[in-house]
Nucleic acid binder design. Structure first.
Length: 267
DNA sequence: CTTGTGTCCTGTAGGC
DNA sequence: TGCCTACAGGACACAA
């Protein structure tokens, strides 16, 4: 998961450094350190950050020992409480910042002021944030003009609008009343206006409610609490159920990803 | 340049 | 019980 530099050099570089501030760019988490260095984490599909006290870490080790006593008896319950810790950052005051990630699609980078690792080309090429000023229907129109791909696939392209993933793309399209499979270049000015507004709303609310926790082993806050945006999902994970308009939510595959929409209120 | 597909990796759920 | 397939919060490389 450590893309740059090598794990041993990263460990050496981080030792004794101070975290001065935190930031975010799209789905990349930025730890601004002293001496103009930056640590970048990307959680991928299944990544989680946990902030643990030394005591919590100890208790966690005990429960791990307990579960391994089960040996072959109950494979399921042994796997359920695996933490999949991949990287452990030891902070001052005995706190632990643990990077857990079952599927290991998460990524870590570290670089200095005038350094631009190749591995971070993806971050450098990112488009605008839906919640930054300058993200408008005109911007979207410019990026989607003449594109024939399904609009939802282009919303997932971080070069066009960053920080939006499968959940928020589906939800924004529903709020905008646009089918996910519409060719992006065909959207009218009015639809682009609705879409820009819906993206802003969904990203803002997603942040306000601290993210989306779909199930127990999904995304969690660093203290282990669940996010809150799942309460406001209107189509994601609701195939076959009623839309608020009375229609029935459908699920289709676009670009290999599940896409949810209501054929009655999205066109 | 654009578009669609396969891939990385681990785990769960459901059908037979 | 095992074995199979499909699917899961992302983002690349690659071929056409």
């Amino acid at each position: 998961m450590i893309k740059y530099p090598s794990p041993s050099r990263l460990a050496r570089e981080l030792k004794g450094r101070r975290i001065k501030s935190l930031g975010r760019r799209g789905k990349y988490l930025l730890f601004h350190l002293d001496r103009e260095k930056t640590l970048v984490l990307h959680l991928g599909m299944s990544g989680n950050l946990r902030l643990l006290s030394a005591g919590e870490l100890g208790r966690r080790l005990e429960s791990r020992a307990d579960s391994s006593d089960l040996q072959g008896l109950n494979k399921e319950s042994r796997q359920k409480d695996r933490h999949h810790e991949r990287i452990r950052f030891e902070l001052s005051g005995g706190k632990i910042l643990s990077f857990e990630d079952t599927r290991t699609f998460g990524k870590v980078f570290f670089y200095g002021k005038d350094e631009k690792p190749r591995a971070l080309a993806g971050m450098a090429a990112m488009g605008r944030e839906p919640i930054e000023r300058g993200f408008s229907s005109a911007y979207l129109a410019d990026r989607l003009r003449n594109r024939k791909a399904a609009v939802k696939n282009l919303l997932l392209d971080q070069r066009i609008c960053c920080g939006v993933g499968n959940i928020y793309a589906n939800e924004a399209l529903h709020r905008a009343g646009i089918r996910p499979d519409r060719p992006a270049g065909e959207l009218t000015r009015v639809e682009l206006e609705k879409l820009a507004r819906a993206l802003r709303t969904v990203v803002r609310d997603g942040i306000r409610w601290c993210g989306t926790t779909l199930d127990d082993d999904g995304y969690k806050l660093p203290d282990g609490k669940r996010g809150g945006f799942q309460r406001y999902l209107r189509v994601v994970g609701r195939a076959g159920k009623q839309c608020r308009c009375g229609g029935v939510v459908e699920r289709i595959i676009l670009g290999g990803r599940s896409s949810y929409f209501c054929p009655q209120c999205q066109s």
